[in-house]
Simulated assay, not measured.
Amino acid sequence: MPTRHARTPALPTLWLMTDPRMGEAMWPAIERLPRGAGVIFRHYGVAGRRTLYERVRRIARRRGLVLVLAGTPVQARGWRADGVHGGAAGAARIRTMGAHDAAELVRAWRRGAHCVLLSPVFATRSHAGAAGLGRVRFGLLARQSRVPVVALGGMDPARARGLPAYGWAGIDAFL
């Protein structure tokens, strides 16, 4: 269930990160999300990206999902997204950013992120070979953050339990 944080609009605690590797499995994954969950649309460089986004947007509106576009704030406004994901400066109703260490957490807060997706918590297929932060390091970093932290990387509901995180995000967990 989304809640309001001190400086954010309605901010989901559960996020689906889209990925071209999801293929047609993306559609039932979006349909299964609970009302108020978020979708971060990341299909970078994919032919027909805007058409694909519009299909996701229609589903998100019908299902009461928050839809954030990985891109620029100008693009997110033009595409009628609820927010923007990424490092470009600019105002957005919801602004999410990724981080992998303490310096990137600070950078995200300074750039106006409403929440930070801290990753990878655990080993993940999307970043094969990358070492995960693990529960302890994730916890230490999350507790330092001035904005809500969402756990990403090898996440599922069981792994999210007990983490000092505002919420969690995933790709494969929804397939």
Rank of each mutant, 00 (worst) to 15 (best):
D101I: 02
R77S: 11
A102L: 13
R125G: 06
T8G: 12
G132R: 12
P28Q: 10
G78T: 08
V149T: 01
V147H: 01
G71Q: 09
A10V: 09
R125C: 02
L65W: 04
R57C: 10
T3K: 06
A130Y: 11
M22L: 15
P34A: 11
G38Q: 06
T3M: 05
R58D: 13
A165F: 02
H43Y: 07
R35Y: 10
G153Y: 00
G86A: 04
G83H: 02
P34Q: 11
G162P: 10
R55D: 04
G23D: 02
P20M: 00
R50A: 14
R50E: 15
A158R: 14
P9A: 15
G38V: 07
A99L: 06
R42A: 09
G23K: 02
R95W: 02
L52G: 12
A113F: 04
A76D: 03
G78V: 08
A103F: 12
V39L: 14
L117H: 13
G45C: 05
I94Q: 02
G38H: 04
S119R: 04
L141K: 01
A130P: 00
A70L: 11
P28C: 09
L133W: 12
H5P: 00
M1G: 15
L65N: 00
L133Y: 13
T8W: 00
L117A: 08
A70W: 08
E24V: 09
G167H: 05
G139I: 07
L105R: 03
Y44D: 12
A70S: 14
R49W: 03
I94P: 03
M26S: 04
Y53F: 15
W15D: 10
R137F: 05
V39W: 09
D172V: 09
D19K: 09
I40C: 09
G48F: 12
L14A: 11
H5R: 07
A29G: 08
R32C: 01
P12N: 04
L65D: 01
P148W: 03
L33F: 02
H5W: 08
L65A: 00
G132T: 06
T96K: 03
R42Q: 08
A99D: 02
M155I: 13
L105F: 06
R21V: 11
R57L: 15
E104H: 04
